[in-house]
Each structure stands twice: as C-alpha cells, then as structure tokens.
C-alpha cells in the first residue's frame, strides 16, 4: 500500500521517533557526564562511571547471575520448547488444537501474578532453592518465544525432506538432528536471542524470587535507584542498551527485524 501522505502526518511521526529515542540519548549523555549527579547535556566527558560499575560488587554479582539465568533459562526452555513446537507442526492433526494455547499461558497470565505464585507455592511452599525457582520462572516466561518463533520456522519447513531421510534408512532421532534442526536454525537462533533479552530484562517474576542472597541485575538497578542517583545507573543502562544492539544485529541476520512486525 503506497500512498502520498500529508506532510503534517510525517511531521507527527518524526516527533514520535524523537520521543522514542530522545530519552535513550539522554541516558547515554548522562552516563558520560563528568559530574556526580545525572545531567544532560553532559558536562565534560568521562568513562569513570563505567569503571565504577565494576567497583560495586552488587552490580558485578547480579550481572553474572542475570547472564547465567538468561542463558540457562532460555536453554532449558529451548530444550523442551523445540520438541513441543516440532510436535505441533509435524503432528498437527493428532494433537488437540488447544495445546498451542497452553504454551502461551505465560504471556496471558500477568507476570506479577506468576512471580507471586511461584514464590508462594514453589520457593516457599515446596522449599525449592531460590536459584532453581528463578530458573524455572525464567524458563516459563520465555517459553512462548521459544515455541512461537521456532514454530514459525517449522511451519514453513517441508517435512517431506525428513520423510525422505527416514525412508532412506536414517533413524528418526538422527533425521531430527541432521535434517530438521539445521533447516530451522534461523528460527532457533532468533528465538533464543529474543528469549535471552526478555529474561535478562525481567522484573515482575524476579522481584518475588530475589532476596539478600540472590538478585538479578534489573532488580539490583531498581534497588540502587531508590537510594542513589548517580551516573552509575546510567552507565549500566548503556551497557544493557549495548546488549540490545547485539540482539537486534543477530535477529536482523537470522529472521530479519521485520519478523517482529508479524
């Protein structure tokens, strides 16, 4: 659909993009400001707030936790989500239609309700170690991404290729790993990376499952913000934006960013 659009609408859209990107530019600017308070435009240029991140042990510790959690939770979710997505695509007529909806429940149920319920029933009720409860919670919230994104790739996969391999004597499990998986690699990588960033940024589930011993980076940031207001928070934010850029580059190279408009 291509039409000529009114210049006023274009001007409006330009303003919207200023509104969307401006605040992030402000964070970037205040992270390099040579002042002990947050200000924009930056006064002087310094990278000391970035090195300051590594002076604060809580940030270093939670960064590690968040990274491990995002990788572990996503890996777990993929390990069980890929077979589920495969079953949905391959045995479409043998499985009930509502099955696909079960995997998106973690999106449908408010995350904060899930976090509270996990804390109450799993972490305290069943006495599951906090790190394991966090891992399960994160695996849950990213499961819809794993099943959906991999599923989208599987839906355009021609299963007769797999059948050909099997009819030529290849065992089913081997056909799955050597024929099916390589063909949906783009979907797996994109799904993994989108799940990873979702887990890395999570607040609503983690907030209930963190305490004095274990915390994640976003929760630590929240706590830090309520006490201090120095450019260190801005510099951690910039690091996180760097991760976002890397994530976007990977999605662009696999499924393309326009995948996110579908």
């Amino acid at each position: 659909m291509k039409q000529r659009i009114h210049p006023l609408l274009v001007a409006f859209a330009v303003l919207v993009f200023f509104f969307l990107l401006g605040p992030l530019v402000i964070i970037l600017g205040s992270a390099v400001s040579d002042t002990s308070y947050l200000t924009f435009p930056p006064q002087g240029l310094t990278l000391r707030w970035f090195s300051n991140i590594f002076e604060i042990s809580a940030f270093v510790r939670t960064m590690k936790t968040s990274f491990l959690l995002a990788v572990g939770g996503t890996a777990l979710s993929m390990a069980i989500g890929i077979p589920a997505a495969y079953a949905l695509a391959r045995f479409r007529f043998q499985l009930p239609a509502f099955l696909g909806n079960i995997y998106v429940l973690p999106i449908l149920i408010p995350e904060i309700v899930l976090g509270f319920s996990l804390m109450k029933t799993v972490a305290i009720g069943a006495d599951v170690p906090i790190m394991l409860a966090l891992l399960l919670g994160h695996a849950l919230i990213v499961l819809p991404y794993c099943v959906r994104v991999v599923g989208a790739s599987l839906n355009s996969f021609d299963f007769s290729i797999e059948e050909a391999a099997v009819s030529l004597g290849c065992p089913r499990w081997k056909a799955f790993f050597t024929v099916v998986l390589p063909n949906v690699r783009a979907g797996i990588i994109a799904g993994f990376i989108l799940a990873f960033i979702t887990s890395l940024n999570d607040v609503s589930v983690s907030i209930f499952l963190t305490g004095p011993g274990v915390s994640t980076l976003p929760i630590q940031l929240l706590a830090h913000m309520e006490q201090f207001f120095d450019p260190t928070i801005a510099s951690v934010s910039v690091l996180l934006m760097g991760v976002t850029v890397a994530v976007m580059a990977i999605v662009e190279r696999t499924l393309g960013l326009t995948f996110l408009t579908k």
Partner: peptide, 28 residues
C-alpha cells in the same frame, strides 16, 4: 523499524529510569 524495535527490546527498568531523569525535581 530499527528505531521502534530498539526501545522495545530495551528493558523496562532502563526505559522508566530515563523518565526519572527527565521528570525529576532537578531533572532535565
């Protein structure tokens, strides 16, 4: 599309923090 995806994939904490900096008493 890149300009719209970038804030979308940036965390809620970071994006809310930006408004803390903008709207504060000594804010921008």
């Amino acid at each position: 599309i890149i300009a719209a995806v970038f804030p979308l994939l940036t965390g809620v904490v970071v994006r809310s923090f930006a408004w803390l900096v903008i709207l504060g008493k000594n804010g921008i």
